[in-house]
Amino acid sequence: MRVRVTEYLDLAIPERRWSCNRCGRDLGPAERPYKEGCLIANRDPREVHPVLAADEEFNFSFDPEWVRLVEFYCPGCGTMVENEYLPPGHPLTWDIDLDLDAFERTHREVPEDTTSPTVP
């Protein structure tokens, strides 16, 4: 069974593997960060965020000496699964580290929810 955990991540149980929600490509064991199964790029943020004030130190875009745009792609379909804005060389973020025993227990007990979200 595959459970959709984020916009782009599925988690298969009992296999305990991450996969891409869009193409199904395996992204590695769920005991480890899914980012280890992605392709990763270190980009100059100005490639995405327009510089409004040309030749100015402060210009409404990011300063690439202070922060880099780190993009994580699904190696199967090239979907950008996640990104981070980090100072150059700063360690990455292990953002989702699930208790897989509890996860498996919970999701085996209830059928997969295919309905639209409900208003609380």
Binding site: T93, D95, I96, D97, D99, A102, F103
Partner: peptide, 10 residues
């Protein structure tokens, strides 16, 4: 879901 979640800002 039980787990450890993280985020960082500068």
């Amino acid at each position: 879901n039980d787990g450890i979640y993280r985020c960082v800002l500068f």
